[in-house]
């Protein structure tokens, strides 16, 4: 496992170097600065999605659920649409990026903890089927809510919402990168620090309590971390849909077993390699002829079907 993680780290260094230094033109300082900013945003998105997906799957006791499938990113979009609708374009655009992001993240964490905490932290919340169904329905609800609010906006206002409603890896919102990093880095550090506790949490409610883990605070805290990390990735590039599913699948294959520390590190590394490498290939090699998000969703869909057909999902 150590060798695989080292290999992944090497790969990440390689793709990052390619991303930064391949085909630098005459304006090297300018281009390099631009690329560095984008690389930071992409890495932040990748690690956030990877860690959030693993944490969510541990809390939900399920390998096919991801925050995106359960509608976390749709919730972020709904909050965004509501903000634009209630404040108007001018006021929304004039809000400082930092405080806007902080407020959205806080609201999102509160709503996610309230809704999904009720769903997953219950004494008799043992039914996986009910969890999946409720989550999918909540996801549809948030998405429809966001669309409904979008319909009521005038076209100018809607164009602002639209910008953030579709995954766009080519042009991450680099103006929020610093704020997103300020939110994501503590959340990621917390996740790594709590890793041994996630090992116990994954055993299920009854065993976790019996082994002395305060189960309910753990579930709620984990959901808050997932909400913050999803807010970060959605704010930077928009909803990532099935990206998390692919990462979690690879991570479980590379770091099998009970321990979350290698699992989280593997997920973060795989996500970074895929995102930076994929974006490099699509931007520089394929010359923007296709977009990475479409390919990721396609591969994610195939992987999702494979999981279902192989009966890995119970």
């Amino acid at each position: 496992m150590r060798a695989r993680i080292l290999l992944l780290t090497g790969l990440l260094v390689l793709v990052s170097a390619l991303w930064l230094f391949q085909g630098l033109g005459p304006n090297r300082d300018f281009v390099l600065g631009l690329r560095l900013g984008k690389l930071a945003a992409l890495l932040l998105v990748a690690v956030s999605v990877g860690v959030a997906t693993i944490l969510f799957q541990t809390v939900a006791q399920n390998r096919i659920l991801t925050p995106a499938i359960m509608g976390f990113d749709a919730l972020y979009l709904l909050i965004q649409s509501l903000l634009v609708a209630s404040l108007g374009t001018a006021a929304f655009a004039s809000l400082p990026a930092g405080s806007k992001f902080a407020a959205e993240t806080l609201v999102m964490a509160a709503v996610a903890v309230a809704l999904f905490g009720a769903l997953l932290g219950q004494a008799r919340g043992d039914s996986i089927g009910r969890t999946i169904l409720t989550g999918v329905i909540l996801g549809i609800l948030f998405r429809s809510g966001a669309t409904l609010v979008g319909r009521m906006l005038d076209p100018n206002e809607y164009s602002i919402v639209q910008q953030v409603s579709f995954a766009n890896f080519s042009r991450p919102a680099t103006d929020t990168t610093a704020w997103a990093a300020a939110a994501a880095l503590p959340a990621i550090a917390a996740a790594l620090w709590l890793a041994p506790r996630f090992d116990v949490l994954a055993l299920g409610r009854e065993r976790a309590i019996s082994l002395g883990l305060p189960h309910r605070p753990m579930v709620l805290g984990t959901l808050a971390l997932v909400a913050v990390l999803t807010a970060v990735s959605t704010a930077l590039v928009g909803p990532v849909a099935l990206f998390g599913l692919i990462i979690a699948g690879f991570a479980h294959a590379i770091a099998p077993g009970a321990r979350h520390l290698p699992l989280l590190i593997a997920a973060a590394l795989i996500a970074s390699v895929l995102l930076v490498g994929g974006q490099w290939a699509f931007e520089r090699v394929l010359g923007q002829k296709a977009t990475l998000s479409v390919v990721i969703d396609f591969a994610g869909g195939v992987f999702f079907l494979a999981l279902l057909l192989k009966g890995k999902v119970r």
């Binding site: 399920n62 116990v200 994954a202 055993l203 299920g204 082994l211 002395g212 099998p256 077993g257 009970a258």
Partner: peptide, 18 residues
């Protein structure tokens, strides 16, 4: 019922968690 895929020794080792 267990969601995670564990070896017998890993499961038993969780008994030492407290």
């Amino acid at each position: 019922w267990l969601a995670s895929r564990l070896r017998v020794r890993e499961l038993v080792a969780f008994g030492r968690w407290p």
